[in-house]
Design a binder for these strands. Sequence first.
DNA 1: GCTGTTGAGTTGAGTGTTCAACCATAGGAG
DNA 2: CTCCTATGGTTGAACACTCAACTCAACAGC
Lengths: 178, 178
Amino acid sequence: MAHTRWLDDEEQRTWRAFLTAQRLLFERVERQLQNEARMPHGYYEILVRLSEAPDRTLRMSRLADTSLSSRSRLSHAVARLEEAGWVERTACETDRRGAWARLTDAGLAALQAAAPGHVETVRSLLFDALTPAQAAALRDVSETLVAHLTDRPVWPAGDDTGCPTPTQAEEEACPEAG
Amino acid sequence: MAHTRWLDDEEQRTWRAFLTAQRLLFERVERQLQNEARMPHGYYEILVRLSEAPDRTLRMSRLADTSLSSRSRLSHAVARLEEAGWVERTACETDRRGAWARLTDAGLAALQAAAPGHVETVRSLLFDALTPAQAAALRDVSETLVAHLTDRPVWPAGDDTGCPTPTQAEEEACPEAG
DNA sequence: GCTGTTGAGTTGAGTGTTCAACCATAGGAG
DNA sequence: CTCCTATGGTTGAACACTCAACTCAACAGC
């Protein structure tokens, strides 16, 4: 990049406001889930994705993709979730490198117990503050960003989890708030 | 809360898109700073706030507030930054409980070295993807959320860092992207 | 001058995330 | 079949963040 394209005043304020809002919001979401459901939001998301999968079962790599998790993170996380008895791993017959992760009944119960508090939090912290038009704008901006951030490489070296556009719900699933 | 106000379909999609966009964006911002400047974004923010303060110096608690950091986090962070020689702590004369944090010359240099890459990242990942109208909408939504999240208690117990509305720039400062 | 409370800041244990290295199997190319 | 690379997944060390406990000083009220 030749010489820096600095942010103008307007952009600066936008970025800082976004940063602040985002921090404050997710900090509280995180805290609420931690306090009331004893799990970080990342784990909640994993449980949600599993609950939406056919047979409440997914391959680890697929689960990593849909829950926006690196393989390593997922591996560690599932290990914990397994200790808690919420998920179980079984070997994959057809591809012996692979592993299935399955949401147990206890896991589903934990998710269903966590959901109301979480959804209420999201609603009260986010949607209650926004007009319908603002919410629509937020969706528009977010979807634009997701599209922007999922195809191009942008940062040449190393790269990361490929992050394909997340496929959506498929089955019973706990009515949740991702 | 009586019985859960679930998210409707529209809200669900908005929330998931927001979540995804946010994750993808900050993951990359984080990675870029980590790779190119050897510091997490939280540390960058601390350096920025200090660079904007008169005399590049702030009380720890004030620094915690303006950088949206808990006291504990800041304490750990400044300890690291001090090891790196980027910040130095000195005792406060008038209030002997207190401490000043000051950005050293080396710290300012590190910040100035980090800024272009960071700003370029923010621009290319965020602003380059948005129309001016979308950027304006993002700012509007963000500011609404910040207002919403900074006054009310919302979550009764414990509470957290008071998080006053962040005061804005004051001095030389590195032209940055908070 | 005491005593209790609040505020400033630090500390350490516990937990989650990242990164790089690693093992094992799958799937070609020769 | 044999190598060779790519893929699926795990592991451990390093590091950041959280929470709760703690220290020390300021500032009441009496």
